[in-house]
C-alpha cells in the first residue's frame, strides 16, 4: 500500500509523526509538497505594475519561483530525516488542492494536517484546501492536528432540547 503525506510549511511535522505512528511497516511512503502559483504571481503582478521599469530578468516573480523550489526541497529533506525510513519525495506545482487529490490516486491512505483557524474548534479548523482534499480524495484520509489534539473538555455543551 502507498501512503501519501501532504506536507505544508508550519504543520508538516505532525503529518510525518502520524505516518510513523500509523503507516504499516511495508507501506511505500510518499512525502508530497505542492507549490501554489499564487505567491510568485503576486510578485509578477507587482512588477508589471511598475510598467517595465527595469529589465525582464529583474522580475521578482521568477526569483520567488526559483527560491520556492529550493525551499520545498529543503522542507522534504527535513521531513525525510524526521521520518527515518525509506520514502519517495514528490514535488508538484499547480492548484494546491487539485494536485494533492491527483497525487492521491491509487494510494491507500492520504495523511494531512488541519490548515484552518484552530482557535475555534469546528468547521473553521479546516481551510479551503484541506476541505477540498478531504471531500475529493480518492482514498481514506487521516486528518491530524498540527499540535496535540484538544481533549474532550473543549467540546461545547449540547444545545438545549426544544420541546
Amino acid at each position: 500500500m502507498r501512503v501519501i503525506a501532504w506536507l505544508v510549511e508550519g504543520t508538516w511535522p505532525a503529518c510525518v509523526d502520524a505516518v510513523r505512528a500509523h503507516a504499516p511497516d511495508d507501506a511505500e511512503v510518499v512525502l508530497l509538497h505542492v507549490s501554489g502559483p499564487d505567491v510568485p504571481a503576486v510578485a509578477h503582478g507587482a512588477f508589471a505594475g511598475l510598467l517595465g521599469r527595469g529589465h525582464r530578468e529583474l522580475d521578482p516573480g521568477d526569483r520567488v519561483e526559483a527560491l520556492g523550489g529550493m525551499s520545498a526541497a529543503s522542507l522534504l529533506d527535513a521531513a525525510a530525516e524526521r521520518l527515518g525510513r525509506p520514502c519517495v519525495r514528490e514535488e508538484r506545482s499547480g492548484r494546491v488542492e487539485r494536485e494533492v487529490v491527483a497525487a492521491a490516486e491509487g494510494a491507500g491512505l492520504l495523511v494531512l494536517a488541519r490548515d484552518g483557524d484552530r482557535s475555534r474548534l469546528g468547521p473553521k479548523s479546516l481551510g479551503p484546501a484541506v476541505r477540498f482534499a478531504v471531500d475529493h480524495a480518492p482514498c481514506p484520509v487521516l486528518l491530524v492536528w498540527p499540535e496535540p489534539a484538544p481533549d474532550l473538555g473543549t467540546i461545547p455543551p449540547p444545545p438545549p432540547h426544544h420541546a
Partner: peptide, 23 residues
C-alpha cells in the same frame, strides 16, 4: 518590489513560515 520581495520570500521559506502574507 524588485529587491526586497525575493529576500522576504526567502526569509519566510528558510524559517519555515508560510510566505504568502509576507509577500
Amino acid at each position: 518590489i524588485v529587491l526586497l520581495t525575493p529576500v522576504v520570500f526567502a526569509t519566510a521559506a528558510r524559517t519555515g513560515v508560510r510566505p504568502k502574507p509576507h509577500v
